[in-house]
């Protein structure tokens, strides 16, 4: 199960990169980046998954004494929690720049952005 989920994450990363590399519309590139972002998060969570174990929350079902034998690795989950929130901030930033770009150029086609070309 973990292998299937990990393969799904890798395929999502590839699809996202393909979209970001081949599209000229900046808004579509940002959409592709969010897809790749989701793929990276899935791969990271999968690395922490161990077979036949449960979520890292202590209660009556998982007493603190034998927690180490019952729970999955909590560290990747804490990392992914951070990554999702930062990903949303970065997406908002990219969208703000896309808006300014449209305001200046009246287009979303990045090949029209020629100031740094020679």
């Amino acid at each position: 199960m973990a292998l299937i989920a990990m393969a799904a994450g890798f395929i999502l990363i590839l699809i996202g990169f393909y979209g970001a590399l081949t599209n000229r519309n900046i808004l579509r590139m940002i959409v592709a980046f969010t897809v790749a972002d989701t793929g990276v998060n899935i791969v990271m969570v999968t690395v922490g998954y161990l077979r036949d174990r449960t979520a890292p929350i202590l209660d009556n079902a998982v007493p603190a004494a034998d927690a180490a034998a019952r729970i999955i690795d909590p560290v990747p989950q804490a990392l992914v929690l951070t990554a999702i929130v930062i990903g949303m901030g970065v997406t908002a930033l990219m969208l703000a720049f896309a808006y300014r770009f449209y305001e200046k150029k009246r287009t979303l086609d990045i090949t029209k952005c020629t100031e740094l070309k020679w």
Partner: peptide, 16 residues
């Protein structure tokens, strides 16, 4: 959620 990560599932559903 299937991968036993409810915290991440909540974050992804609300934010992502």
């Amino acid at each position: 959620l299937l991968l036993a990560a409810p915290d991440v599932a909540m974050t992804e559903a609300a934010i992502g």
